[in-house]
Design a protein around this nucleic acid. Structure first.
Length: 218
DNA sequence: ATCCCGAGGG
DNA sequence: CCCTCTGGAT
């Protein structure tokens, strides 16, 4: 089996998930920040809906902070983990106002110091809103990259480095979304749909699941 | 049962 | 490293 080039893999995913190209459009840093905080344990469809409703009442950090904890909690109730997220969103808005004039900072240090913002969310903002060198690795990106043999699968931090070394920089923020969609639609954790996956020829996981005796898959 | 774009705390 | 936090969808 000859090695499949990363650009070829990305091209296949591009064709498979054209929606990923739209995932980056028309979002200011603040909206992207809040939507990303909301995204944990919650479908993107719901995140988009909840974000719309939240921003209808509080479109900037000041207006959102003015809503107060209870109102924010109500508005984002459709998302999972809303109790934590509501407190984090309020505290983050207050911190943006107190320290950064209501603007989203563009350094990793400042971003990760915001309540509810960890490395993954900071990477999304950095690469997606500010065009800075970062690849956000969540559970989907981690798993898909590991299965495709693009990363050793040691830890997310290592996967960031491996992917940045492999993928042309102009595609970093976009490939993040491609892996997300793939991880959700076909390359799921427990029941990957390998039979429908167009990346079989490139996939170490698929090839590893081949029983060499029989040629069948386990 | 398992999944959904994590983070913070012990 | 482990645990918890949410509830709806499939």
């Amino acid at each position: 089996m000859e090695e499949v080039e990363i650009v070829e893999i990305l091209a296949v995913l591009d064709r498979l998930y054209p929606q990923a190209a739209c995932a980056l459009t028309h979002r200011n840093p603040f909206e992207l920040l809040i939507a990303t905080i909301l995204s944990a344990q919650c479908t993107d469809l719901r995140v988009n809906q909840v974000t719309r409703e939240l921003f209808a009442e509080g479109a900037d950090p000041q207006a959102m902070a003015d809503l107060g904890l209870e109102r924010i909690r109500q508005l984002i109730r459709g998302c999972g983990l809303f109790n934590n997220k509501a407190a984090n969103i309020l505290a983050t808005c207050q911190k943006l106002l107190a320290l950064y004039g209501g603007r989203v900072p563009d350094t990793r240090e400042a971003l990760e110091a915001l309540p509810g913002v960890g490395r993954k969310t900071a990477n999304v903002i950095l690469s997606n809103a500010f065009g800075q060198p970062a690849i956000a690795v969540d559970t989907h990106v981690f798993r898909v990259a590991h299965r495709l043999g693009l990363s050793g699968g040691v830890n997310p931090r290592r996967t960031e480095e491996d992917l940045m070394a492999l993928i042309p920089r102009e595609r970093w923020s976009h490939s993040h979304h491609l892996f997300i969609f793939h991880g959700r639609n076909l390359c799921q954790a427990r029941r990957p749909q390998c039979g429908q996956c167009p990346l079989q020829a490139a996939c170490k996981y698929y090839q590893g699941s081949l029983d060499l005796e029989t040629g069948n898959h386990r």
